[in-house]
């Protein structure tokens, strides 16, 4: 485990469905400063992956930190990571602790 985020986990989500299928809340300047997964939709890529869970906090997307990013900026970053043809997966660094 790293020193800064000892409980974080890297989850690789393959783009196995046409949607990512997660809902997030939170972002800088809200009560939830880092995005938290609030829903995982059945049949979406995240659900198919089987490793993301409701309640997890997303720390990084493809190695890019979400710290200090407002909700819309974080959501845009995740959406773009899913949309790009450059990769067939999205890497999420998540933690179970808030």
């Amino acid at each position: 485990p790293g020193l800064l985020e000892p409980t974080s986990t890297l989850v690789r989500v393959a783009k196995s469905a046409s949607t990512l299928g997660i809902a997030i809340e939170g972002g800088a300047n809200t009560r939830q400063p880092l995005p938290r997964i609030v829903t995982i939709q059945r049949g979406g890529s995240a659900h198919n992956c089987g490793q993301l869970k409701v309640g997890q906090i997303i720390l990084e997307v493809n190695g890019v930190s979400l710290r200090g990013r407002e909700h819309r900026d974080a959501a845009r970053l995740i959406a773009e990571a899913f949309k790009t043809k450059e990769r067939d997966h999205v890497d999420f660094l998540v933690t179970d602790f808030n």
Binding site: R31, R72, I78
Partner: peptide
């Protein structure tokens, strides 16, 4: 007493 945080709740986005 401890002051409550006054930060607003976040919107939710489906991705």
């Amino acid at each position: 007493r401890e002051k409550r945080l006054t930060l607003p709740p976040s919107e939710i986005t489906l991705l």
